[in-house]
């Protein structure tokens, strides 16, 4: 049982870390907001929230 749980945890960790590294590697530009560095406190405002209603 412990073996199975460890296997699952390692697989999830590998997928998560692999995805993060791949995203960093593939992205056209490493954003100053996406580095997740401890000294980097820049957060992105979400541009998708911009489609707000405009009254006539």
């Amino acid at each position: 049982m412990q073996d199975l749980m460890v296997l699952a945890a390692v697989a999830v960790a590998a997928l998560f870390v692999g995805k993060r590294l791949w995203q960093t590697f593939r992205s056209r530009q490493v954003s100053s907001c996406g580095c997740s560095c401890s000294g980097c406190d820049r957060s992105n405002a979400n541009p998708q929230d911009c489609s707000l209603p405009r009254p006539n």
Binding site: R42, S43, N44, A45, N46, P47, C50, S51, L52, P53
Partner: peptide, 30 residues
Amino acid sequence: TGARQHVGNYPGITVEHKQGCCLHKQQGLS
């Protein structure tokens, strides 16, 4: 926007553009 972009009391802190939104009197502003 209510965002928390890094504000530096020195020039050159923003080198790329950042986007956010707000609502003013029912008018959306990007």
